[in-house]
Write a protein that binds this DNA or RNA. Structure first.
Lengths: 334, 334
DNA sequence: CTGTTAGCGCTTTCAC
DNA sequence: GTGAAAGCGCTAACAG
């Protein structure tokens, strides 16, 4: 049962028979005699004391909060990343201020200012707008999966290029002869753009003719995909491609549905590899929705937090790429 | 560009040529002469001033933070709920402290204490442990989807009973003769338990023999489902049931996969309705993974926040049930 | 209406 | 090592 009134450090000091400052020191890991330490610990326990974040923050001009600015938590990749960030912070005694900016520039900047004014210890940003100009020098910030030209902020991302190559090579390994690539891009340059570069590179390396959908994300995505399928039908009704590397699991899943609607079999007629590694209903035990190049979400989150809180900015790498991994999910023959 | 050093209220007062207290009053919406208001506003703008949350929180013993204690954000229902809570708070100028407790009792209580000690304005809790005993009288708390015997905390949930009835009736409407129910329950009593009650009630009403899986959630769920299918095979290889009301979309989706693996067609041979209304990859435009009784996630979140912040506890309903809705998602014939 | 002032709970000098 | 004391920036109570 939580006590009626929260105990203050003063109460602890009185209970332990020491000075206020001594309690503060012990809590902050400064040297205190063994005897007083025991008394203070006992007092803390008996009073169920916890430091008041506001007083601490006011005094020290900092908090134990870290803001995560992200478009939303509906997208399963974002929500999984959020979950892992929360955990990485929890392990370090920090709390997560979740900011869903919906990809709206004005809201992203609003949250950014809010975070700065709330004296958060740091900000992890996965934004759609170029926030480079809006951050103040002295607040730690890590950018996930994006890059901005006008500012060199530390960035963390998956190795998208290598992942794309891996996708193509897996498709070839599983018997595909004509792997195509599909994506619907947004206007902002991000690390994920390198998935296309990787696809093109792998095609060149294996002497394949690249073929892809690469149009701007819109309400017409489905129509574009249907059209693509239609245009790739041979005279005998088969398809002129037999493998798909989808920019994300999402598009891979949608594309799979369209193919099946058209009577094609996945993976027998067409094999599909997506990117992200989205688990079925977020449940790691049940495998993936589709075969995928999986991003190491836990490692990515951990790395973001680690870099953010490391403090030593001179040792901070400007770009950290983490390795991805192929996992089968029923849309490939292996 | 954020300024180097944050201005304080004192700076604003000096700049505007008024007293500190006057600035405070204006900011807090208390009456101030039009003339000074203008001066203060100008000073605020020119100094790019924003109130310091910590000082404010320290003094007022409250913050603009609301804690959401939830098992995780991996589960798409939780992540969608989180997203909507964030939005509902944003609209009210509050910030979200996200606490993923993983369904671990000790962690839930830890977060609860943390939230209380951080003087959050309120707590929205979707917990697995009985937190009724651990909360102090004076902190607003709303329980989502759960109930605890020892304490009457305000609760918000979907109308699970009506939803279950609706599911059965939709299955009948679409031509099913033998709808079964499947769930894997956890140990804690929650509002969702009423889905089974609703199923049983609907069966009785329509003179159907109830038939279901209702075992504790475990690693053997798949085996249990496979076994259920096996036991319901007729001599001629058809199944003795033709409709499934799944306790959640998740189990409905898994069950569908198993049925298809066994060569049964969904929805032609067996129709499936889940519960929750999970959108494909969280994207509202692309429909559902399976046909479902959809929970009104936005209204649920909005209601939780509204009740939490309403303040007037004497007018707070002890239970608020929100209506659900059927939506087709390809696993039914309509 | 406005100015003055006493703390909120904590960290951090500074003497001892 | 330890204690005393000065604020961090703000709100609220009070006197004008």
């Amino acid at each position: 049962m939580a006590s009626k009134k929260t105990a203050t450090m003063k109460d602890v000091a009185k209970e332990a028979g020491v000075a206020l400052g001594t309690v503060s020191k012990m809590i902050n890991g400064l040297p205190v005699s063994e005897e007083k330490r025991r008394k203070i610990e006992a007092a803390i326990k008996s009073l169920n004391y916890e430091v008041n974040t506001y007083a601490q923050g006011l005094r020290a001009q900092k908090s134990n909060l870290v803001a995560l600015i992200i478009p939303n938590t509906n997208n399963p990749f974002f929500s999984s990343f959020t979950n892992q960030v929360e955990y990485a912070l929890y392990k370090r005694g920090k709390k997560l201020l979740l900011c869903c900016a919906g990809g709206i520039a004005q809201k992203e900047i609003e949250y950014l200012n809010m975070a700065i004014n709330n004296k958060v210890d740091g900000i992890i940003a996965l934004t759609y707008s170029d926030i480079g100009n809006y951050i103040s020098q002295d607040i730690p910030l890590v950018v996930f999966d994006r890059y901005f030209e006008n500012r060199d902020l530390p960035r963390v991302a998956s190795d998208n290029f290598a992942g794309a190559c891996l996708a193509v090579e897996k498709l070839l390994e599983f018997g595909c002869r004509h792997p195509v690539y599909i994506r619907f891009y947004s206007f902002l340059p991000g690390e994920a753009d390198k998935r296309k570069d990787g696809y093109l590179y792998a095609c060149a390396k294996h002497h394949l003719e690249p073929d892809f959908i690469d149009v701007e994300n819109s309400k017409n995505n489905i129509a574009v995909m249907k059209d693509f399928i239609e245009k790739h039908k041979n005279k005998d009704g088969t398809l002129s491609f037999d493998g798909v590397f989808a920019h994300t699991d999402y598009y891979g899943y949608i594309f799979q549905k369209l193919l099946r609607q058209e009577g094609f079999r996945v993976p027998e007629d067409v094999q599909i590899i997506g990117f992200d590694g989205i688990n079925i209903f977020g449940n790691a035990d049940d495998g993936l929705f589709i075969s995928s190049i999986c991003q190491p979400v836990d490692a990515l989150a951990e790395k973001c937090v680690e870099i953010l809180l490391s403090g030593n900015s001179s040792l901070t790498p400007s770009l950290t790429l983490l390795p991805v991994q192929y996992r089968g999910g029923g849309t490939t023959l292996e």
